[in-house]
Computed example of a mutant assay.
Amino acid sequence: MIAACRCTPPPAGDWRRWCSSGGSSSGGGGGGGAGLASSSATCSGRSCGGAGLARSSSSRAGTALPAAVRDDLLRGVDAEHRESVARVVELAQRAADSWAVLHSDFHTPPVVADALMVLQRMADVAGVAWGGYPQAERCRLAVGREEAVEGLAGDPSQLGGVAAVEVTGNFMFDPASHRDFLGACLGTGIERGKVGDIVVRGEQGAQILVAPNLVEHLEAALTQVRTVPVRAAAVALSELQVRAPRVEELSSVESSLRLDAVASAGFRMSRSKMADLIKAGDVRVNWRAAGKASAEVQAGDVVSVAGKGRLEVKAAAMTKKGKHSVQMVRYL
């Protein structure tokens, strides 16, 4: 197997060549890195050929990515998400080495967006986000070799990795919020990353998306939410009772498709106020920091503003007068 040499890591920007290197180890072992080296070579007085690449004398799954390759893969990732995305990269390496499909923790949409961006840079590796139902916000990433993952992208439910627990009790006199149900789950000793969306059902309780291996634990340990005794039991994903999101359809005619112009119309605020929010980093486009107020949006873009929700640009067409007719949907 071709692997990065310890003494001469591949230069920044050369990760595609490193990730896509093929070949087999002298030991003949299978389970190659699918774009990620699973072994390292030590240069003992011999030349390291090929832009810092060397042929390993043995295969060892799970070797960490060289720092230069890892840093190059993570370029452009939001600093707040870097550690989480790095763990997804390491998981993808293990999945490729073992020819398996592995699942990450549940992550928020911005982290998922950054992780999918990085996975696209890795040769022969793919990832699919799935949170238990199509509109889920917190999702797990199923990662592995392209042939194992991409064939299931059309029906992510086949990937597994997400289960549901229904929590029932009489909440008529002591209503519980999303935070209450989350706190009760974490109080049983599980980590936040193992809990996905929580569908609160008013007086009836809630349905909670979790990692499958925690279902039995919650069935035994989750016995109370606030002051209400509860019963937790597994429920099929097909039985989730997710309400359709409340939306408002909007239309606007703008002189340009600048972010500040379109977003100010969609969120009904002044353009100067929207520009201030963009400058403060409170506005994201497709879950990534917007950067500049002058950036243009296009059909399919999702614009979110901290504390004010999000909107989707459904269509943008030029009018006869040279302006832009923009159709939007705001999620309330």
Rank of each mutant, 00 (worst) to 15 (best):
R231V: 12
D14A: 14
E203G: 09
H103T: 05
Q135L: 15
S104G: 08
E219A: 01
S272C: 09
R284Q: 10
E254W: 09
V305E: 04
L311R: 08
Q158A: 15
E90A: 15
A280I: 06
D71I: 07
L277W: 06
A129L: 02
S270I: 04
S57L: 14
D14M: 15
C185Q: 04
S20N: 10
R201D: 15
V200T: 13
A236F: 05
V112H: 03
G193R: 06
I198L: 09
D114I: 05
P156T: 06
G281M: 01
V167P: 00
R138K: 11
T108C: 14
V112N: 02
L209R: 01
Q120M: 12
A4Q: 08
V111E: 03
C48N: 09
E137T: 05
G31S: 07
E147F: 13
A306G: 11
S44M: 13
E146F: 14
P110Q: 07
E90C: 10
V253E: 10
F171N: 00
S21M: 12
M269T: 08
I198T: 01
R16A: 13
Q241A: 14
E249P: 10
G132D: 04
V215G: 00
G187P: 02
L116H: 04
A51H: 11
V101C: 03
A317P: 07
P245Q: 05
V162S: 01
R258P: 03
G161P: 02
L102Y: 06
K320I: 15
A317I: 13
Q135P: 11
V195W: 01
T188M: 05
L73S: 01
E312T: 12
G205Q: 00
G30K: 07
A265I: 00
R288K: 10
S40N: 12
G62H: 05
P109C: 06
T188W: 02
S104N: 08
A164M: 04
E296H: 15
D71N: 11
Q120K: 13
H81M: 07
R60Q: 14
E296P: 02
V143P: 02
G62P: 00
R138I: 08
V199K: 01
S56N: 09
R201V: 08
Q224P: 04
G300P: 06
D124Y: 06
A315C: 12
V85I: 03
Q224F: 09
